[in-house]
Amino acid sequence: MPGPIIDLSLYDDEQALLDGLRRGDPDACTCFVKRFAPLVYARALRLLGDADDAENVLQTTFIKACAALSEYTGAGSLKSWLYRIASNEGLMLLRQKRPQVGLDAAGELTPDETDLHFNIPWALDPARSVLEGELRREIARAIAELPDGLREVVVLRDIEQLSTEETAERLGISAGAVKVRLHRARLRLREALARYLETVSETTSQRDNSA
């Protein structure tokens, strides 16, 4: 049975939302989840590449955030604070799942990952914004398919936009290793997009020819 309709705008203001949460107001909890959970879930899924793992990280993130509400100083946005908790939880989960892998092992990359092909033409026309939604889905899929060691670097450096040094610190690896992994990750993503753009361009020209 649907519950009562809640006026979400009541808690548009972050301070009001925080006050509501600290008072234990149920509507504030609902607003908190409705506003931030889809963002945290998307971030967790990008980092982990697995829906069940992302769901676990989402739940842990919100439970930890609620437990630490009194420690949140309001420096930076509530969203950044949640993202940080989520990526810490996500990285911890990745470590638990592959404890046998040395943290700084660039050698964890298989040889074929260094054997990239550059002969795929790049056919992205920035004017064709109609492709943007599809492109975003395609790049999200390509990120999910990266090996953990590359995916975590690209999420922290290019999506969370941390510096090389911050990323190295969060992952417990050297700045040099971050750069090597980021380079490989971006080349692989570029290749995945190039392949996709090639398919789109073939489909479009076939359609144009038959029209």
Partner: peptide
């Protein structure tokens, strides 16, 4: 250029909510 566009796309992936 293609790497730059790939990185731009990655930067704009942030804050794309995923409905639960």
């Amino acid at each position: 250029l293609s790497l730059q566009q790939t990185v731009d796309l990655l930067h704009h992936l942030d804050d794309e909510p995923l409905p639960l």
